[in-house]
Simulated scan of single mutants.
Amino acid sequence: MPVRKVRPGPRVLTAALCATLAVIGYMTVSPEEATPPAAPAPRAAAKNAGPQAAPLPAAPAAPPGVGPVTRTQIPDSTSQALVVTGKTRDTNVATAVLYERDGTGKWRQAAGPWTAHNALRGWTTHHVAGDLRTPIGVFRIGDAGGRLPDPGALLPYDQDEEFVSPGTGFLGEPLEGSFDYVVAIDYNRLPGTTPLNKERPLGPERGGGVWVHVDHGGPTQACVSLPADVMRQLLRALNPVREPVIVMGPADEIAR
């Protein structure tokens, strides 16, 4: 009989995936108003001036290899990022590194690098079902599961026999065991639910079921895959308190 953990209800994401733009207003004045008043007589400096406003904290720096444009998609509240980069848009072998941000705002390498696979035809900024490309961008990762028992995940973990992957891959390799451990990528899915949830907010034509899962030795349909021991390590490291994200795509585009 499958073991299933009681999962919390859908979680409300508290951080937007884009930067806030500041809006500056201007005031129009008449020529009379534009005339400067006479300078007042000199005054002695105030002895007990009130406290000055503290400067606003700088936005957190970006993980290594992540450029300023991509950085704007990472919520300021996020302090854990799995960065997956390929050499070009058309490659299906990638490198994955887990970074964490400390209390000073600096990002450090927490684990990796690891060799990963992505989709057969590479990457895309407009993923559609069947294009055999992995979506480029920054996405939340907050739900996990798999066919095997929970290895100690901090994320909500759904053990279910439905995590099956029959057949063979693009290189003729067996797919069995690929879904022993998975982490759902919040692309066209309902966050806060099992990775098996098939709701597609963008519509089925935009694909779905994009996961980080166990590597089977070849390219994927759209997912990112890592070795089984790395998946266990990742599941024990990803912490929902840190609001983790995955940053993925060709290295040159992520660096913009």
Rank of each mutant, 00 (worst) to 15 (best):
N92R: 10
G167P: 00
R101C: 04
D76W: 12
R133G: 02
T72S: 13
Y99W: 15
A94P: 00
K87H: 13
I185W: 01
P156E: 08
A94D: 06
E100I: 06
L120W: 12
R89S: 14
P135C: 06
D90Y: 15
T78Q: 05
A111C: 06
D76C: 07
G103T: 13
D180K: 04
S178D: 10
V183I: 15
D143I: 05
Q109N: 08
L82S: 03
R140M: 10
Q73T: 11
V83G: 01
H117F: 15
S77H: 09
R89N: 13
V84A: 03
V97W: 00
A144I: 08
L175H: 07
G103Q: 12
G103I: 08
D131P: 02
G105Y: 04
T115N: 09
G192D: 02
V183R: 00
I136S: 05
G146E: 04
V83H: 04
G172K: 06
A116E: 02
T168A: 09
N188D: 09
L98I: 02
G130C: 06
S79K: 12
A119F: 02
E162F: 12
G112P: 03
V138L: 09
G112L: 07
D90Q: 13
Y181R: 15
V84L: 03
P151M: 04
V83D: 02
Y157G: 07
L82P: 00
Q73M: 15
V97C: 05
Y187H: 14
E162M: 14
R121W: 14
V183W: 03
Q80D: 01
V138I: 12
G112Y: 04
G86C: 03
R140Q: 10
T125L: 11
S178A: 15
P166T: 03
R89E: 11
T125R: 12
A144G: 08
L132Q: 13
D158H: 15
H127I: 00
V84D: 00
G172Y: 08
I74Y: 07
D158W: 08
H127A: 13
G122H: 01
E162R: 14
V182Q: 04
H127M: 14
D160M: 06
Y157A: 05
V97H: 00
D102G: 05
H127S: 10
W114L: 02
P151A: 05
